[in-house]
């Protein structure tokens, strides 16, 4: 167990090192920060001074080592735009993103397992076919399009009047085809402060309503992927000898599905799924932009527009760190729930 932890930690550090080198290296290719920091009228001599002061003239290695040393203390310097430590800017935006990712994860887990399992148990039923069809559509439509459609239907509302409006039945049918909208689709609304930089949407129904459309659109690709993954795994497990043997033992189908098959299905899903959830943090950029969700994704895009290099680098590092942490946790959980994996440092 200890050896396993040490090995995983070593991996984590290695990945973080690579992320830090890459994220630091791209700063040279991201425009001139001085231009963003000072006005047009500032003379070249002053610019050069500022450049020297910020250490932008030092060799790459020197700049990297200085960066790495500070990064250990979560000190990534000051944001050019906000004029405050970048880590504080990121931490201020992070709760919004994490809450969005959390809500999306809940959505995915709530729907993918029952739908995936159902469509594996009854692969030929019309409902299963419908689920599979819809999931293909979900996977193939880009997130921002899904988001825009959701906004149109549920936030703005659509008025569809193909039937005569002056008759009772006509307006009733029109009403079925139309929506009032009204679902919040801009920002987080009023949030309740919890602790530190963390304010939450989860404190009230009103707050939750702001999460609905963004989390649905963030889930629109991952949820179908999960459904298909679970279905495929379950179908394979149901073909296995141990399921046939369980049938030959006279075990009830319910127990075979939910005890024998489900656990074996979920093992690989935990691995793939856990990693995917980790990447959700990075996938929020599009969703946050469309819904003006004040999370790190939106902050990151703004930082790029402003060539706020320290903030960009901090974002990459923190998202990288979250990714590495989730992966390590996933490995640990997998090891704990899978009896055939021993948590040793040695490969199985």
């Amino acid at each position: 167990m200890i050896a396993f932890l040490i090995k995983r930690l070593f991996h984590a550090f290695l990945v973080m090192f690579i992320i830090s080198v890459i994220s630091f290296a791209i700063q040279d290719n991201l425009g001139d920060p001085i231009q963003q920091m000072v006005g047009q009228s500032v003379p070249d001599s002053e610019r050069a001074e500022l450049r020297e002061e910020l250490g932008l003239n030092d060799p790459f290695m020197v700049q990297y080592l200085r960066f790495a040393k500070n990064a250990m203390h979560f000190d990534f310097g000051y944001s050019y735009f906000y004029g405050e430590p970048t880590i504080e800017v990121v931490l201020r935006h992070l709760p919004a993103t994490l809450e969005l990712v959390f809500a999306t994860t809940v959505l995915i887990m709530l729907f993918s397992v029952p739908i995936g399992v159902y469509s594996a148990i009854k692969p030929r039923s019309p409902l299963s076919r419908l689920f599979m069809g819809v999931s293909i559509v979900g996977i193939s439509i880009p997130v921002f399009l899904t988001a825009i459609v959701l906004i149109q239907i549920f936030a703005i509302g659509v008025q569809f009047t193909p039937f005569p409006v002056d008759t009772g039945w006509g307006s009733w049918l029109n009403g079925l085809l139309s929506t009032d909208g009204g679902m919040p689709a801009y920002g987080r609304g009023d949030v309740v402060h919890v602790v530190g930089t963390w304010s939450t949407n989860f404190a009230s129904l009103e707050g939750l309503s702001y999460l609905v459309l963004p989390s649905i659109s963030l889930a629109s690709i991952m949820l179908p992927l999960f459904i298909r993954l679970i279905r495929a795994e379950m179908l394979e497990v149901l073909q296995s000898d141990y399921v046939k043997f369980a049938k030959a033992k006279g075990i009830s189908m319910r127990r075979i599905y939910f005890v024998h098959a489900l656990k074996n299905t979920m093992l690989p899903v935990i691995t793939v799924g856990g990693v995917q959830i980790g990447t959700l943090v990075a996938y929020t950029i599009l969703t946050e932009t469309v819904f003006q969700w004040p999370g790190v994704g939106l902050m990151f895009l703004d930082a790029i527009e402003r060539s706020d290099i320290p903030l960009i680098v901090t974002y990459l590092m923190i998202v990288g760190l979250i990714f590495v942490i989730t992966n390590t946790l996933v490995d640990l959980i997998y090891g704990l729930v899978n009896p055939t994996v021993k948590l040793t440092g040695k490969p199985a």
């Binding site: 000898d241 141990y242 043997f245 369980a246 030959a248 024998h260 656990k263 093992l267 009896p339 055939t340």
Partner: peptide, 13 residues
């Protein structure tokens, strides 16, 4: 009784 005892028992139970 099945042919392959390695595959007949459920690995997670």
């Amino acid at each position: 009784i099945f042919q392959d005892p390695m595959m007949t028992l459920n690995p997670v139970l």
